[in-house]
Amino acid sequence: MADQLTEEQIAEFKEAFSLFDKDGDGTITTKELGTVMRSLGQNPTEAELQDMINEVDADGNGTIDFPEFLTMMARKMKDTDSEEEIREAFRVFDKDGNGYISAAELRHVMTNLGEKLTDEEVDEMIREADIDGDGQVNYEEFVQMMTAK
């Protein structure tokens, strides 16, 4: 299944994987998964984290390695993001709930994920998604960005 991913997608997933893999040992533990999910405003229980890991832990060693992570991402993409997942993601970014993602809100979430971005990089990300040019990202623009192939 992971063989249907483009090189660009694999590179993006590698970057995402390293955000989860806090200690850089090449595997994601339940603790690391929990840290990232909490930084995104989720509050999973230990059991939920274990279930999430077990779902993709092909070799049964209790952690997720990069090939397992790729399989999980490929699977998720095949079920292409349901509207509800996209709306949920939008809410994570839209901290003040005004229906727009500002540069400050984007920077806040990315920083929580451990991504240190310059102001230019954040502005560039907003510009790429900002179709109507108002300097922020509304829900429609967010959907376009998330579903762009």
Rank of each mutant, 00 (worst) to 15 (best):
G97H: 03
A47P: 07
E128N: 00
I53N: 04
Q136C: 01
I101C: 15
G26R: 15
D132G: 13
I86Y: 06
F17E: 04
V137E: 01
K95Y: 03
V137I: 12
M37S: 03
V92C: 08
R91E: 06
N61W: 05
M37V: 13
V143Q: 06
Q144H: 10
Y139I: 02
T35C: 10
E68I: 02
D81C: 10
A74Y: 15
T80R: 08
E121V: 09
E105T: 15
G135M: 03
E68P: 03
D134S: 03
M73D: 09
V137D: 03
D3Y: 06
A148F: 15
I101A: 11
E7H: 03
E115K: 11
Q50V: 03
M110E: 02
D134F: 03
L40G: 03
E115W: 04
F142Q: 05
G60T: 08
M145L: 06
I126P: 00
N61H: 01
E15K: 08
T6I: 13
R127G: 11
A2D: 14
G34H: 05
K95S: 15
A89L: 03
V122I: 11
Q144D: 05
D65P: 14
M1D: 09
A89C: 04
N98E: 15
V92E: 06
G34D: 02
K14H: 02
A58H: 09
G133H: 06
L40Y: 01
D130K: 01
I64K: 01
T111W: 02
L19H: 04
T71S: 06
D51H: 02
T71F: 02
L5H: 01
D96C: 15
I86V: 11
P67F: 12
E84Q: 09
P44I: 05
S82Q: 09
A89V: 10
G114K: 03
E83N: 00
D25A: 14
V92M: 09
L33K: 00
E128W: 09
T45F: 14
G62F: 12
M72T: 14
A58E: 14
I53G: 04
A2I: 05
I53C: 14
E32N: 09
R87Q: 08
L40T: 03
P44L: 13
A148E: 00
K116T: 14
D130L: 03
Q9N: 00
D119I: 02
I53V: 13
E83Q: 03
L40W: 03
D119W: 08
L40H: 15
T71R: 10
T29M: 05
N43P: 08
E120Q: 02
R107H: 12
M77F: 06
D3W: 05
A103C: 00
E83P: 02
S82D: 00
E88P: 09
L5R: 08
E141D: 11
K149E: 11
R75E: 14
M37C: 06
V143R: 15
A2V: 13
K78G: 11
E115V: 10
E124D: 07
F17S: 08
V143I: 12
E121P: 03
L19A: 14
E48N: 07
G62D: 11
G41M: 15
K31S: 05
F142W: 04
Q4F: 06
Q50L: 14
T6K: 02
T118A: 13
D132K: 07
E121D: 12
G114M: 07
I86A: 09
N138H: 11
D65T: 15
M72K: 05
G60E: 00
A74T: 11
Q50S: 08
T45Q: 15
T29C: 04
N61E: 05
L113T: 00
N43F: 15
A89N: 01
D21W: 13
Q136Y: 02
L5G: 06
M146V: 13
E7S: 02
V137N: 07
T111L: 10
E120D: 10
D23S: 00
Q144K: 07
G114Y: 04
D132C: 05
A16E: 02
M1Y: 07
D59E: 13
L19G: 04
E105K: 05
Q50I: 14
M1G: 08
T118G: 01
Q9A: 00
E7N: 01
D3M: 07
K116W: 15
T147H: 08
L40I: 15
Q50N: 08
E120F: 14
R75H: 08
Q42S: 06
P67T: 12
L106K: 02
L33D: 00
D25H: 07
I10G: 03
K31V: 02
T111C: 07
K31R: 12
V109F: 13
I10K: 00
K14M: 06
E128K: 09
Q50H: 11
D79G: 12
T118E: 11
E140G: 12
N112P: 09
E46T: 02
D130F: 01
E121I: 04
F69E: 05
D51I: 08
N112Y: 10
A89H: 04
K14I: 00
T30I: 13
V143D: 04
F66P: 01
K31Q: 12
A2Y: 04
D130R: 02
I53W: 05
N112E: 09
K14Q: 08
T71M: 15
D123L: 00
F13R: 01
P44A: 13
A129E: 03
A11G: 10
N112K: 07
M145T: 12
E32Q: 02
L106V: 02
E48P: 00
V56H: 06
E15W: 05
T63N: 05
T63M: 03
E115N: 07
D132E: 09
G26E: 03
M145K: 09
A58Y: 08
G97M: 14
N98D: 11
T30S: 12
I53K: 14
N61S: 13
E12F: 05
E88G: 11
Q4R: 12
M146R: 01
A2K: 03
L49D: 04
L40M: 14
L106C: 03
F69L: 11
R38Q: 06
G62A: 15
A58D: 10
T30A: 13
E48V: 10
T111F: 06
T147K: 08
T35V: 02
F17V: 10
N112C: 03
G34T: 05
E120R: 01
Q4K: 11
I131Q: 07
E88N: 15
D59A: 13
Q4W: 00
E32A: 14
I86M: 00
Q4S: 09
S39R: 12
G97Q: 01
A89K: 02
E140N: 10
E7W: 15
K116A: 00
A58R: 01
Q50Y: 15
F93W: 09
E121M: 01
D21G: 12
L49K: 02
E83F: 02
V109T: 10
D57S: 04
K116E: 11
M145I: 07
T29I: 12
E84M: 01
G26W: 10
E83D: 07
T71D: 01
S39N: 06
R38V: 13
E124K: 12
G135K: 06
A11T: 13
I101F: 14
F93S: 01
G60W: 07
E48M: 15
T29Y: 04
N43M: 08
T80A: 14
I131W: 14
N54F: 03
K22P: 00
E124N: 12
Q4V: 06
G24H: 06
E105D: 12
A148T: 14
K78S: 14
E15Y: 09
M110W: 03
K95N: 04
D134P: 09
T35P: 10
A89M: 08
Q9R: 12
N98M: 15
L19Q: 13
I10R: 03
G97R: 14
L19C: 05
D123N: 13
P44R: 08
I131K: 05
N112M: 07
D59G: 12
E128G: 11
I53Y: 13
M72N: 13
D25V: 10
E140F: 04
E105C: 07
T147S: 12
D79C: 15
T111E: 14
R91M: 09
E140P: 05
A148Y: 05
G60N: 14
A104I: 01
T118S: 11
A103Y: 00
A148C: 05
